[in-house]
Computed example of a mutant assay.
Amino acid sequence: MNRAAARTIPVWAVVPPRCLLLDLAGPTEVLRRANLEQDELRFDLRYVAARRQLPSSSGLQLAALGALPARLPEDAVVLVSGSVDDVQFAPMPPRRDDEADEARIVDWLRATLRPSHQLLSICSGALLAARAGLLDGRACTTHFGLLDALRSLAPDARVCDNRLFVEDGNCWTSAGVTAGVDLLLHWLSRLAGPACTAAVARQLVIYLRRSGSDPQLSPWLEGRNHIHPAVHRAQDAVAAAPQQDWNLAALARQANTSPRHLSRLFNEHAGMSVPDYVNRLRVSLARELLQSTRLDMERVAERSGFASARQLRRAWARSNAAPPQQARHRD
């Protein structure tokens, strides 16, 4: 990997007292895996806390934790993981130490985070962010068992029920435990693209889900809630280069199987035919180009893998009531 050409994104993972280990390990594993799946971005992950050593929820001791830095670079990302309550936490240190450590984290968040920083809050980490005043006026969420506590701590926030995660500007919050992985995958897709995100999720052997506010499943993720390696190899190839001429024979070579067998596997595991999958990804790419560029329809069609604008419009009409031109006017 050519690290010299990669953009480095500094990420500070804040470890609270009584750390719920999965809140920390799940999201950071997404970033570790993303460093292996692509060359353009490198996530420089650092663990910081109010003290150098803390027990985790599973009893594993977390050691050599860094100090909360006095200042952060302008492009810093701060990931605040969650903690468990006293009843669930067997190796609990004295409560007064926990309260003092939490207060130090809250003071640090309040004093250090700026509008240029990205805040990613996992599970009950939202309570620390709320105490620091970072959720005031924002939409946010947390573990379902802590929603009332979040409302109490942040009365000016718009606390959302029944959501995996909520995005509000540079402040993203997630629901409980594994929802932190969903948040990180969604955030990763914004930075590294859907192909990288799909590859990370596949390596972690998890489903890719969307936010509760999204009415439809993204075509980049649709049909990938399976674990068949041959189908994933074909899907990875299409996601990496939708513009390529992906006929059944070419994809079968990528999947190391026969065209007939790949066609059967796609229908069984992806729930759609190979041409349907290719066209859905190409339409999705065309939508992104229409929303983010001023290219004319012929160039959009060419870049997204269609032979002509007419072919793009026909494929578009199969899944969209409005014509593709209207995509340019959407927020």
Rank of each mutant, 00 (worst) to 15 (best):
R18W: 08
L20A: 07
D23L: 01
G26S: 01
P27Q: 03
P27L: 01
T28M: 06
L36R: 15
D39V: 09
D39M: 08
A50C: 06
R52M: 06
L54N: 02
L72W: 07
V77W: 04
P91R: 08
M92E: 11
D97Y: 02
V106F: 01
D107S: 13
W108H: 01
L120G: 01
C123H: 00
L128A: 02
A130K: 03
R138S: 03
G145P: 03
L147P: 03
P155E: 09
R163A: 15
F165D: 00
G169K: 12
N170A: 14
T178E: 05
D182S: 12
S189F: 05
G193M: 02
R202T: 11
R202P: 06
L204C: 08
L204W: 04
V205T: 13
S218R: 12
S218V: 06
N225I: 09
I227A: 13
A230H: 13
H232E: 06
A234P: 01
D236W: 01
N247I: 07
N247L: 12
L248P: 02
P259K: 10
R260H: 10
L265Y: 06
L265A: 02
S284G: 12
L290W: 14
E298K: 14
V300T: 10
S308F: 07
L312T: 03
A322Y: 14
A322V: 12
P323I: 10
P323A: 11
P324G: 05
R330V: 14
